[in-house]
């Protein structure tokens, strides 16, 4: 069944695949998600990033109509999640943190089962399975029981399962969790391929922040609050050219010493991290100066982990 996009004549405004306005979910006193505002344009690749327990899954479940928001309004693919849950579910594909496959059935049988749940004509299911299995290099495992597949292949199949019905919005909850680095990269490559082929909106969550650099847009969530949002490149650039890490026995003294040139560092135990604003910072000089006093001195490019660390540091000042 093809889902027709409601084309509104004369409107050239950006269409949003996901729109959240002041969305909240409370469990008793705990605000798992707190006044969340999100506008994700169609075809965007969006990363929702945060550590464990920050509210990512809760957000995804609200988007997929499994959890009702206790506050605010939320629409996905133009449908309100509370008023038209079935329409929302038809328009989305959800890949849970845990596998949504039947281990006792084969790869093919799983896909056919899903096809029937979405009432897709059988020839569509056949063509589509073929296409997806090729896209994800799974063709040779077609008749294998899912229980015999490796963790990486199973996750891949789970994503294929999530997009069989060509959803307009694909939601992925920690698609790389529990996988080794190689499989994690593969999964990202497949998501990228899928985006190129299908032009769908993708929202994924991960707590491996550094891997989300390929997203068009990322948002950081902490204890249910959005604490920052932007293009990964811009966010990283805004930190500076480098991150300088210093390990020292006397971190407080070194923090004070470098404060005039590099500003306030982030301190974790006896490790200090400074943002180095420009490329031609005289590292060699600093190294000579501190050589005997510090254990280690290390200069590296910032990544999204650093963005999160700095956002976290600023948060109490800006919001409370």
């Amino acid at each position: 069944m093809a889902i027709k996009k409601a084309e509104q004549p004369g409107s050239d405004k950006t269409k949003y695949a996901i729109e959240a306005s002041q969305v909240g979910k409370s469990y008793g006193d705990l605000r798992a998600v707190d006044r969340l505002d999100l506008s994700i344009p169609e075809a965007q690749f969006f990363g929702l990033l945060g550590p464990n327990g920050s509210g990512k899954t809760t957000t995804l479940h609200m988007l997929s109509t499994l959890i009702r928001p206790t506050e605010g309004t939320l629409s996905v693919a133009g449908y309100d999640v509370v008023k038209s849950p079935v329409s929302v579910r038809r328009a989305i594909g959800l890949v849970f943190q845990e596998s949504a496959l039947d281990r006792n059935l084969t790869v093919d049988e799983n896909l056919r089962f899903v096809g029937a749940l979405y009432n897709l004509p059988e020839h569509v299911v056949r063509e589509r399975s073929q296409e997806l299995l090729e896209l994800f290099d799974l063709t040779t495992r077609r008749h294998a029981r899912v229980g015999t597949l490796s963790g990486g292949l199973r996750r891949t199949l789970d994503i294929a399962r999530g997009v069989l019905h060509r959803p307009r919005v694909l939601l992925l909850d920690e698609p790389t969790i529990g996988l080794d680095v190689i499989n994690r990269r593969t999964i990202w490559r497949f998501i990228e391929r899928l985006r190129q082929e299908e032009n769908m909106t993708v929202l994924l969550t991960t707590h491996y922040l550094e891997e989300a650099e390929g997203c068009d847009q990322v948002a950081f969530i902490r204890k249910g609050n959005l604490i920052g949002q932007g293009k990964p490149k811009m966010l990283i650039q805004s930190l500076g050219a480098y991150i300088l890490e210093i390990e020292s026995e006397a971190p407080d003294r070194h923090a004070e010493l470098l404060n005039p040139t590099l500003g306030t560092p982030v301190q974790e135990g006896n490790r200090l991290m400074f943002c180095v604003p420009n490329e031609d910072f005289p590292v060699a000089e600093l190294q000579r100066e501190l050589k005997s006093a510090v254990h280690a001195l290390h200069l590296r490019r910032p990544d999204l982990n650093d963005v999160y660390i700095w956002l976290n540091r600023q948060k109490p000042r800006t919001r409370r």
Binding site: S64, V86, S87, R89, R90, F96, L101, D102, R103, N119
Partner: peptide, 14 residues
Amino acid sequence: ESGVMRMLIIAPFA
């Protein structure tokens, strides 16, 4: 544990 419940709960029917 079988995963099928996950498929069913997000399928497009009540």
